[in-house]
Nucleic acid binder design. Structure first.
Lengths: 122, 122
DNA sequence: CTAAGACCTGACACTGACGTCAGATGCAAG
DNA sequence: CTTGCATCTGACGTCAGTGTCAGGTCTTAG
């Protein structure tokens, strides 16, 4: 499959895919004419990367994590493993922050709703 | 209180406070010499703003929300109210995303842990 | 063969929340 | 008064991921 199809199937832009490759997150083979060619597997890989991006991991961090994804048996996966656990914790903390922010908003929303109700009591 | 004290008490940089003021998120009175002066209340306000920032709201969005915070009775709070509800939902969706990413990491972590255990069985 | 559309590389633009620096001024202590 | 730290304004730098444009090439349908 060529880059356009991968882009639409994984839900990212063509530009992003080229950027991911530049960062070493994905690889491609090239056709005779020099165009990138991908296998089915790349779709899931890109989705996975997107998920980590959405969780606030940088491309560099994702890159450091990939050894764990690709082959859990690598010796150098030690660092990656530690990294993965740390990122997991960071995400947990971030979730807590978001919940706090949401709670704060909920309180505001309730306060405003109450005020509105008192204005139009019928 | 001057800007340095507010900064340390609210846990942000002096630069950030000037930026918030520039964006209209906080206000200050000025001393005779032109230095910013703040009341106790600003500490909480800055912490609140920080919380929304941490939740991914932009300064512009925070600005639109502030009418609800300052005076729930404003007529123009209608828009702000809608906005608040939308942001609340966005945060909820973001939390879901983060949980998914965390789950994905957890699966990876477990897979790696299992692999390690199988390498050093004793 | 040809036209159209997908793709290529390379480069610059942009956004947002700051960091950081320069050069000037305010303010409190000795 | 002076020394030194806090503060002032204004401006430019940063970072990361991506948009976008230019000018050229590949691929495929007709």
């Amino acid at each position: 499959m060529r880059i356009g199809e991968l882009a639409s199937r994984a839900g990212v832009s063509v530009r992003s895919l080229r950027y991911y490759e530049e960062q070493g997150l994905i690889t491609s083979t090239r056709s005779a004419g020099g165009q990138r060619t991908y296998t089915e597997d790349e779709v899931e890989r890109v989705r996975f990367i997107q998920r980590l991006y959405a969780a606030g991991l940088s491309s560099r961090t994702v890159l450091e994590l990939l050894p764990c994804v690709d082959s859990p048996s690598e010796q150098n996966a030690d660092e990656a493993f530690e990294r993965m656990v740390r990122e997991r914790d960071r995400i947990s903390r971030h979730i807590d922050e978001l919940c706090q922010a949401r709670d704060a908003l909920d309180r505001l929303i309730d306060a405003n709703r109450a005020h509105r109700a008192s204005l139009t009591p019928h």
